[in-house]
Every structure is written in structure tokens, then in C-alpha cells.
Simulated assay, not measured.
Amino acid sequence: MPISDVIPLYRLRIDTPRLTLRLPHPDELPLLADCAREPIHAVGEEPFENPIGLGRPSWSSAPPADRARKAVQVQLGEVAKWTADNWHLELTVWLDGKPIGVQTLYAKHFPVTREAATISWLTLAQQGNGFGTEARAGVLAFAFEWLEARSCRSRSFNTNGKSVGVSERLGYREDGIDVEAVYSGVARTSRRFRMDATDWHSRSRPSVTVTGFDDDCRTWFGIATQAARD
């Protein structure tokens, strides 16, 4: 029996003009591990959060073997602890059949709030080609058009210009700032961004195709089945 018969999330697939976003099957996890071994950002940069007290650089600056292990652990862990009230959809970003990063869509109490958030990473070699914008547009399309989200959030450190640029290109609105203490013992300011469903539908978007979002899959997100909707 294939794992997709047990966990319908593995049937879910989001296709954008150049990319495919989907969960890696168990036998594909070594490919994701190899992807995570590649540099995620330039030496000396710290674009990701790492709360003070952990006493080490962020995951993205960890040794390649540590990044590979953690990427696989996150994939397995988020599926294992998934509930309709608290979920992280850790979609691998595939380009020509090879992983180039991860695009996450996550939410708490989604059936009530209809609000989700995103976070992502791409290998350094694949940055600057518009893939980050395209991958996030893919999950936003899924959120707004298939999950019928009311809003989606994102957050980036001021120093993470690439992530901020993606939010601005896609039409998010500024939503305030946060000041956080990170592993180095310094305060860093992050910018919050928000997009509502009306913002998403207010402009033309790239073509996105979603397959595998059947009634079994819908229940994992706490969304009414099609029969109940009809």
C-alpha cells in the first residue's frame, strides 16, 4: 500500500509554471537531505530566526550534515504530529525533478481563523531566478483558492532583503515590526507582512494547478468535504 493511501497529504501537488511543490515520499528523503547540505546563504549572513538561549547559529549556518538531518527530521515530524488545528505543510520545491528547497504553509486553528503563514528556504545556487517568488505564489494560490483562507502572513528580518522583496512583489501589505533576541545576544528587527484574500484576487497571478486535494485531503486541514459543501 502506498503511503498516499494512508496519508492523503502525499497526493497533494501544486504546479507553477516552472516548479512543483509536494511532500517528498520516504524514498525521496535522501534527495532532500542532499539539497539541505548545499549552502542556503552567503557566509556571515543569518536570515533565519534562532531564539536566544539555543547557544548556536541558526540551522542554515549549521554544518551540512546537521542541515541534512534536520531537514529530514522536520519533514517526518510535521507529518507525524499533524492535526487539523495545528499543521505545517512542508512542501519540497522541485525543479526538473530535483529538490531546490522547501516552501512551508502553516496554521493554527485554521478552521476558525482561516489564516495561515509561510516560511521558506532555497539553496543559494537557485536564488535570484524568481523561484522563491514563484514557490510562494504557489502556496498562496493554494491557500486562497483551495483552502479559502482569509489572510496569509509572512515575516522577514530587515537584513533579509530577498525575502522582503518576495513579499513586496506579491503585493503584501506592511503589518508592523517585531524585535527579537537571537542566538548572538543582539536584538534584531523583523518586518511583518499580511495579504488578505481581496489583495490576492486584486491582480493577475501566475497559473497554478493543484491536484490531489480530494475530500480525504480536505479533512486533514479541517475543511468541509465537497459533498458537505454541496
Rank of each mutant, 00 (worst) to 15 (best):
A68C: 03
V208I: 01
T198Y: 10
A80I: 11
P206E: 14
T211P: 01
W94L: 07
K81R: 08
L147W: 03
G55K: 07
H25E: 12
F213T: 02
D230A: 14
D230N: 09
M195E: 04
V166G: 02
F110L: 06
S61G: 08
A141K: 11
R67K: 00
L21N: 09
E115K: 15
S202H: 07
V102P: 01
E38L: 15
T123R: 03
R205K: 14
L21C: 00
H88S: 13
D15M: 06
K98W: 00
I119K: 11
R37L: 13
G171A: 05
R67C: 09
D34N: 14
A107M: 14
G53V: 02
A135V: 00
E180K: 01
V74G: 10
S60G: 02
S58C: 04
V93T: 01
A116Q: 09
F144D: 09
V74N: 12
V43M: 08
R205E: 00
G132F: 12
R229E: 12
P24Y: 03
S156T: 11
H201Y: 10
G165L: 06
D27G: 11
G44Y: 06
R136Q: 04
D85L: 07
F193G: 05
A71T: 00
M195Q: 05
A149T: 11
T104P: 10
R188S: 04
R13S: 10
T189V: 15
R173A: 11
N129T: 11
F131L: 13
D196T: 11
V182W: 09
G128Q: 04
R203M: 06
W59G: 12
E174V: 07
D5F: 09
W94C: 09
L54D: 09
G161S: 02
T113I: 05
S167A: 13
R229W: 12
C152H: 08
S184M: 10
A135L: 08
W87N: 05
D175A: 15
I40K: 02
R67G: 07
A68G: 06
M1L: 05
I7N: 15
K162M: 08
G176L: 13
A71Y: 10
L105Q: 00
T123F: 05
S167I: 03
E174R: 08
G185R: 04
R203H: 07
N50S: 11
G130N: 04
R18Q: 14
R191Y: 01
L21P: 05
I7D: 11
S154V: 06
T113S: 12
G53P: 14
L31A: 14
S167W: 05
Q127A: 02
R169K: 14
V112P: 00
R56G: 15
N158G: 10
S204W: 15
D96S: 10
A42R: 01
V186C: 03
D34H: 05
L29M: 14
R18H: 13
G44C: 13
Q226D: 13
Y172Q: 05
V186L: 04
L170P: 02
I52N: 09
T219F: 01
A228G: 12
Y172C: 00
T133G: 12
K108F: 10
A187W: 07
D15P: 03
K98S: 03
R67Q: 08
F142N: 03
E180V: 12
D66S: 15
